[in-house]
Amino acid sequence: EPLWIRPDAPSRCTWQLGRPASESPHHHTAPAKSPKILPDILKKIGDTPMVRINKIGKKFGLKCELLAKCEFFNAGGSVKDRISLRMIEDAERDGTLKPGDTIIEPTSGNTGIGLALAAAVRGYRCIIVMPEKMSSEKVDVLRALGAEIVRTPTNARFDSPESHVGVAWRLKNEIPNSHILDQYRNASNPLAHYDTTADEILQQCDGKLDMLVASVGTGGTITGIARKLKEKCPGCRIIGVDPEGSILAEPEELNQTEQTTYEVEGIGYDFIPTVLDRTVVDKWFKSNDEEAFTFARMLIAQEGLLCGGSAGSTVAVAVKAAQELQEGQRCVVILPDSVRNYMTKFLSDRWMLQKGFLKEEDLTEKKPWWWHLRVQELGLSAPLTVLPTITCGHTIEILREKGFDQAPVVDEAGVILGMVTLGNMLSSLLAGKVQPSDQVGKVIYKQFKQIRLTDTLGRLSHILEMDHFALVVHEQIQYHSTGKSSQRQMVFGVVTAIDLLNFVAAQERDQK
């Protein structure tokens, strides 16, 4: 057995438009009618409502009807409940999964919650491996369901041993009777949507819809739904939504950006999952974080739909894509998950301010006199920076000697690579993860907040409520011999709460 199987392995699926269902090699399930009293909570997966979006479509000038398939009504709160249950049931049916076995899954959280929910009911041990950027709410729900959680670096490539995929496979090879159901490759993922989600949409719309818009992560949702719609409703256009920084969209030119990270969760990847059939997507749109969270908040405030950030991405694209539809036509959007997962993220004004998705003037509360002053007023001194090749031991000596707790790590040209902190280095040394002679590049981390000289002290204040420091950066445009230009970030300084307090105190003292 291989040590790991690539999540982007070539698909062996034989589905073709027009091929009889009787030739399918898979076990198919028909939607079942729910009894009045459910035998367990797993029976509350599927049969989610279709809700008309009344205000947002009109606000953006849509002539067509805009409908939302509300997947956050599933038992675990997301569309991923469907595939989690289906993968477990299919693994039980073919004898792969037996009582007492362990389920391991690399996930952005929602599939993990679905699997942990099913594992709690069915009696399996469950280990979820997820990147650090995923919300604390997801972690809390997983723990409450009895799952064990392993976190991995957000910026690790999918084929790196440190990625959530790599760590999951390492655990599988170490733990007896453990299984990775593997949402990236498992046919049960798109089949769950082909058999149930798509049929529900067709039934709820009486077979009449002209466009379907869905955000894409593993691709199982859009693949399964689109294949069924292509068979039953061939005139329906399928629109895929991919965040900026991901590479799922086609044509490839759409993916060209210097951005590699994004805040919206559960969609987009740096590889093409095996289950994603991009041939059934008629057109791709890219979405960005700001519009995703703005539209998610709009869905909550104006439509009462308590959905997550990827739902915002989907609707932001839908109001663009559906401009081509006329009166009497219908566009369906998939709202994948609930706001429950993001209470401390985009639902929080403070978080939105820190990330730059909300401006101070958007909030009406009274601010102190210094709130709208610029960061450049602080008069920061030149920063202490270190090269990635310097040793951890030497870096600790320098920081202690100069009285700093942290320093930016830059390359020879001064471009920011990340940050090192005294606390992080000492804990890594004590844990045996690094040696004093190791290069400081081994303990770089990139989960820090950046701020510009033109940003306000109010925004800085919000950042420092949650973080010990902020890195002050400025952009530099560099022209190359080819005539092309590129933008790079340079370090201007490091600012802490002490710097802000000293500035405010000094100004008030001078005024007296």
Results as ranks from 00 to 15, higher is better:
I238R: 01
I239V: 04
I239L: 05
G240T: 04
G240V: 15
I247F: 07
A249E: 07
E253M: 01
E253L: 08
Q256R: 13
T257F: 09
T257A: 11
E258M: 09
Q259P: 14
E263T: 05
E263H: 11
V264C: 10
V264K: 01
V264S: 01
G266L: 03
I267C: 04
G268Y: 04
G268D: 01
G268T: 03
Y269M: 01
D270T: 09
I272N: 04
P273T: 13
T274W: 01
V275A: 10
L276G: 04
D277G: 09
R278G: 07
R278S: 10
T279Y: 13
V281K: 01
V281G: 04
K283N: 12
W284R: 01
S287F: 10
S287V: 08
D289I: 01
D289V: 01
E290A: 06
A292K: 06
F293L: 03
F293M: 05
F293R: 01
A296G: 11
A296F: 07
R297C: 01
R297N: 01
R297H: 01
M298K: 13
M298V: 15
I300T: 07
A301T: 08
Q302I: 01
Q302C: 11
Q302M: 12
Q302E: 06
G304C: 05
L305K: 06
L305F: 07
L306W: 01
C307D: 04
G308N: 04
G308R: 01
G309I: 06
S310F: 04
S310V: 03
A311T: 12
G312T: 07
G312H: 05
G312V: 01
S313C: 09
T314V: 11
V315C: 09
A316H: 13
V317I: 11
V317G: 15
A318V: 03
V319C: 15
V319L: 10
K320T: 14
A321G: 12
A322N: 06
Q323K: 10
E324W: 06
E324M: 10
L325D: 01
L325K: 03
L325E: 05
Q326L: 01
E327N: 01
R330H: 13
C331N: 04
C331A: 14
V332Y: 01
V333A: 14
L335E: 01
P336T: 06
P336C: 08
S338P: 12
M343F: 07
T344N: 01
T344C: 07
T344G: 14
F346C: 01
L347F: 06
D349W: 01
D349Y: 07
R350C: 07
R350F: 04
W351N: 05
W351E: 13
M352S: 04
M352Y: 05
L353F: 15
L353W: 06
Q354I: 01
Q354N: 15
K355I: 05
K355F: 14
F357T: 05
K359L: 09
E360C: 05
E361C: 10
E361F: 11
D362V: 14
D362R: 15
T364H: 09
T364S: 11
E365S: 10
K367G: 11
P368A: 07
W369Y: 04
H372E: 14
L373Q: 01
R374T: 09
E377V: 15
E377H: 06
A382G: 12
A382Q: 13
A382C: 04
P383G: 07
T385I: 12
T385L: 10
T385A: 13
V386H: 07
V386C: 14
L387R: 12
P388S: 13
P388T: 06
P388G: 13
P388L: 14
P388H: 07
T389C: 01
T395K: 09
I396N: 10
I398Y: 11
K402A: 07
G403S: 14
G403N: 01
F404W: 10
F404E: 04
D405N: 01
Q406L: 05
Q406N: 06
Q406F: 05
Q406S: 06
A407R: 03
A407W: 01
P408F: 06
P408M: 01
V410Q: 13
V410T: 12
V410F: 09
E412F: 09
A413F: 12
G414C: 10
G414Q: 15
V415K: 01
G418P: 04
M419H: 04
M419Y: 14
V420L: 13
V420A: 10
G423I: 01
N424S: 01
M425W: 09
L426F: 12
S427I: 15
S427A: 09
L429A: 01
L430M: 08
A431C: 01
A431L: 15
G432A: 13
K433F: 12
Q435C: 14
Q435V: 11
P436A: 11
S437K: 15
D438G: 13
D438Y: 13
D438H: 12
Q439E: 07
Q439L: 09
Q439F: 13
V440M: 13
G441L: 11
K442A: 10
K442H: 12
K442T: 14
V443N: 13
V443M: 15
Y445T: 15
K446E: 06
K446I: 07
F448S: 09
F448L: 11
R452W: 15
R452E: 09
T454G: 07
D455K: 05
D455C: 13
D455N: 07
T456N: 11
T456Y: 09
L457N: 05
L457E: 01
S461Y: 05
H462G: 12
I463H: 15
E465K: 15
M466V: 12
M466N: 01
F469T: 06
F469V: 08
A470G: 08
A470S: 13
V472D: 01
V472R: 07
V473M: 12
V473Q: 10
V473Y: 12
E475A: 05
Q478P: 13
Q478I: 09
Y479A: 11
Y479D: 06
Y479H: 01
H480E: 09
S481D: 08
S481L: 15
S481C: 12
S481A: 14
S481P: 01
T482I: 09
T482S: 12
G483A: 15
G483M: 13
G483D: 14
K484I: 13
S485L: 10
S485P: 11
S486L: 13
Q487N: 12
Q487Y: 09
R488Y: 14
M490Y: 14
F492W: 10
V494T: 07
V495S: 12
A497P: 01
I498C: 01
L500H: 15
L500S: 06
V504P: 01
V504R: 14
V504F: 12
A505S: 11
A505D: 09
A505H: 06
A506T: 11
E508F: 12
R509N: 05
K512V: 13
